[in-house]
Nucleic acid binder design. Structure first.
Lengths: 203, 203
DNA sequence: GTCTATAGTGGGATAGAC
DNA sequence: GTCTATCCCACTATAGAC
């Protein structure tokens, strides 16, 4: 019942203050944006004084940075794992879509914050996150390219173009998905697989 | 009367200070985010003192509000116009995709700001913008639904689901499109039409 | 590990001259 | 329509007691 979101209520109760801090930060960053979220609000949500935060973190930017790293590691791991046991190229594409959508929506606030607040990081840290993101996108592209080479995906566009179109189709979901809405992450993954692979025209 | 209907290409050179102010604001809002952009920066970019801004606007939020209204009016008008002369349901879907992509990318910063900074508006103004957005989305949905009714689009998903999938595919483009990149807005519209209508699987 | 208190900076907006 | 000068507030982060 209270088990919505990626991390169960039970885990949250046992979480260290540092972990609760990160959970609260990601919630507020997604709700209001990084720049508009104040350390005062984060402290209030946790029921501690502002100064106490700085025992756990060095700066507000630390929170954003760790959120971005975790987000990309999580989705990269989830997708790698989902396709690792499969050999059929089209099966791998479908498993990738499913894992991407389910992982992204299970940890929706974290992924959304990573995808939209990159610009708020310092140059150095932003470059690090962009590299992690590029590595993940390379994985996606290679799975699509293998399917093209196997002759089961359209070759009228480059693998890069197929990757851009696929990530377009999947990622925008974070802006309108609601955990208690009509469509589950699995429903959405199914819809996107149909649309991406089969198209919607019926003549 | 003298101001009426000034939408020409030479508009920028003759733009009033109020118009230049809005142009500069949208550039900065998209680059750094609304909350992270200061009125000091906007004034500096225009080469005026901070206080001078307040002759033209009542508050910083005014700028965001007017940007959002313009953005939605522009894309709604562009798409309405593009489909108005067409009767074939599939032609209308294709023209809608083309007009949405070209309009969105021609005015990229404005649309991107509207789509990502809605949460920074006051409750009242946000509700107004959400309604404008809903009206545009209804137009998109009705075009898709007519094509379903005509038997030329897949009926395995609701018109609402087809709409969500289509806007996903198109809108995320604002995050990676670069005006001087390899792909023109027309190229991208073509790619998205192929992917959305025909799918990418080839068995 | 959390507290009280505050330093130090930068923010949006206004008053009134020209 | 733009200027100089300034108010007042909110922000991040730190110092040092407990």
């Amino acid at each position: 019942m209270a088990d919505n979101g990626a991390e169960s209520g039970a885990r949250r109760d046992r979480a260290t203050t540092a972990e609760k801090l990160k959970d609260e930060a990601v919630r507020l960053f997604w709700e209001k944006g990084y720049a508009a979220t104040t350390t005062r609000e984060i402290a209030e949500s946790l029921g501690v004084q502002r100064a106490s935060l700085y025992y756990h973190i060095k700066s507000k930017e630390d929170l954003l940075y760790f959120i971005c790293v975790e987000s990309l590691n999580n989705i990269h791991t989830a997708v790698s794992k989902a396709i690792s046991a499969l050999t059929d190229p089209l099966d791998r594409v479908e498993a990738m879509i499913e894992a991407h959508v389910v992982s992204m929506l299970a940890d929706r606030e974290k992924h959304a914050t990573m995808l939209t607040e990159l610009r708020s990081l310092s140059d150095l840290r932003r470059a690090e996150i962009v590299q992690l993101r590029d590595e993940y996108e390379s994985l996606v592209r290679s799975v699509l390219e293998e399917a093209q080479d196997a002759g089961v995906l359209w070759k009228g566009a480059s693998a890069k173009e197929l990757e851009l179109a696929l990530l377009n189709l999947l990622n925008w979901t974070i802006f309108w998905y609601r955990p208690n809405g009509e469509l589950s992450p699995e429903d959405l993954a199914g819809l996107f697989k149909e649309v991406y692979l089969g198209g919607v025209a019926r003549t």
